[in-house]
């Protein structure tokens, strides 16, 4: 069964249709990439899936575990992470800059820990299972800090970390919500080739851990190398859908990236791969 099924999704802003009747599926345990030229509607699609926009039409079904389905477009924004088990990162990093890396990861486990405090009351009085829950929370945070190579910086404020480390910390924070589907908005943006290779390894490790991934990416090196499945958007419409090899050879995709006088577009490395 697919972890994500998007059916006839449309998102309009006034007269502008940013996403037009898009349908696709993301298979469980796969890395699915959404690519497309600038302004193709990738981030809008993402914001619909993660509940930041209410779609104008269409449905989004997520299956946090086999045999269970949740309609995301009906949930309030904050319930998507909890009930749909969808986590996300942001194109422009959104960490809690004044809190330490560890605190960032603890905030990500808010719902589970908050339940353990008896909604604050028992926690303040120091009774109940909060201590044990917090210890488990710290262990989970430590696990993801180790996976992302940030354990040395655990007690440093997130805002003081270097750019690449902030990107990794944002992924670690999303993973601390224990998602079934992790949505990454341009995770490789601004990374140097070495960091980019490290990111590939991290994302593969996350996939092996049983979490499905959905990513928007401009870096074709990352996309072609990593994805099991690619969806191409242009002007809000899906123009192609297939494996990396199929996408690379698709004349419509090459046209979308190269056509209409955009030969000098820096986002056109698909042509290089295709050539």
């Amino acid at each position: 069964m697919n972890v994500l099924t998007v059916t006839n999704l449309t998102m309009r802003f006034g007269g502008l249709t940013a996403v037009n009747n898009v349908s696709f599926t993301a298979a469980r345990g796969h890395i699915t990439a959404i690519i497309g030229p600038n302004g193709a509607g990738k981030t809008t699609l993402f914001n619909c899936i993660t509940g930041f926009y209410k779609p104008s039409a269409g449905s989004i079904a997520v299956s946090p575990e086999p045999g269970k389905a949740v309609q995301l477009e009906k949930l309030p924004g904050h319930a998507i992470a909890r009930k749909g088990r969808v986590a996300r990162t942001f194109q422009n990093i959104r960490l809690f800059g004044g809190m330490t890396a560890l605190e960032n990861l603890m905030v990500a486990q808010h719902n589970r820990l908050q339940a353990a405090t008896g909604f604050g009351v028992l926690g303040v009085l120091g009774i109940g299972g909060y201590r044990a829950a917090e210890r488990r929370g710290i262990e989970l945070a430590r696990h993801w800090l180790e996976q992302t190579g940030l354990v040395e910086r655990a007690d440093d404020p997130a805002g003081a970390l270097p750019y690449g480390a902030q990107r990794r910390l944002e992924i670690a924070r999303a993973m601390c919500t224990e998602p079934a589907l992790l949505c990454l908005d341009e995770p490789a943006a601004g990374l140097n080739p070495r960091e980019s290779a490290g990111l590939n390894a991290l994302l593969r490790k996350i996939r092996e851990g049983g979490c499905s991934l959905l990513l928007i990416e401009h870096d074709m090196g990352v996309v072609m190398n990593l994805s099991d499945h690619i969806i191409v958007l242009d002007h809000g419409k899906k123009i192609a859908d297939g494996t990396p090899a199929e996408i690379r050879a698709d004349p419509v995709v090459i046209g979308a990236y190269l056509g209409e006088g955009e030969e000098d577009d820096p986002d056109a490395p698909v042509a290089e791969h295709a050539a």
């Binding site: 930041f52 904050h78 998507i80 960490l95 809690f96 990500a108 719902n111």
Partner: peptide, 12 residues
């Protein structure tokens, strides 16, 4: 620090 990030983490 960041309300939008909170929402994405499932905080009401």
């Amino acid at each position: 620090e960041d309300e939008i990030a909170c929402r994405s983490l499932g905080i009401n």
